[in-house]
Amino acid sequence: MAAATSPAAPEQTPKTPTSGPVPFNFSQPPIIEGFNPLPRAKDESFKEKLIRKTKENPFVPVGCLGTAGALMYGLRAFHQGKTRQSQLLMRGRILAQGFTVVALVVGVLATALKPKQ
Results as ranks from 00 to 15, higher is better:
M1E: 12
A2Q: 03
A4F: 09
A4D: 07
T5H: 12
P7G: 12
A8W: 01
A8F: 05
P10R: 02
E11W: 11
E11C: 07
Q12K: 10
Q12D: 07
Q12T: 12
T13R: 08
T13C: 04
T13E: 05
P14E: 01
P14L: 07
K15F: 01
K15I: 02
T16Q: 13
P17V: 09
T18M: 12
S19Q: 11
V22I: 10
V22D: 02
V22F: 02
P23Y: 01
P23I: 05
N25H: 10
S27L: 11
Q28E: 14
Q28D: 10
I31D: 10
I32T: 13
G34T: 05
F35P: 00
N36D: 05
P37Q: 08
P37C: 08
L38K: 12
L38D: 12
A41L: 15
A41R: 08
E44D: 11
E44K: 09
E44A: 13
S45H: 05
F46D: 06
K47F: 12
R52A: 08
K53E: 08
K53Y: 10
T54S: 08
T54V: 03
E56T: 04
E56S: 04
E56V: 05
N57E: 07
P58N: 03
F59V: 05
F59L: 10
V60M: 00
P61S: 05
V62G: 01
C64Q: 13
C64N: 14
C64A: 15
C64E: 15
G66V: 02
G66D: 06
T67W: 09
T67K: 13
G69M: 15
G69V: 08
L71C: 05
L71H: 02
L71T: 04
L71Y: 08
L71W: 05
L71G: 00
Y73D: 13
Y73P: 03
A77V: 09
A77W: 02
F78D: 03
H79N: 15
R84G: 07
R84D: 15
R84F: 13
R84I: 15
R84A: 15
S86P: 03
L88H: 06
R91F: 15
R91H: 14
R91Y: 12
G92K: 00
R93K: 14
I94P: 05
L95S: 09
L95C: 10
L95M: 10
A96G: 00
G98E: 08
G98K: 11
F99N: 01
T100C: 14
G107P: 01
V108N: 06
A110W: 02
A110Q: 06
A110T: 04
T111N: 11
L113A: 14
L113I: 10
P115H: 13
P115A: 13
Q117N: 15
Q117M: 06
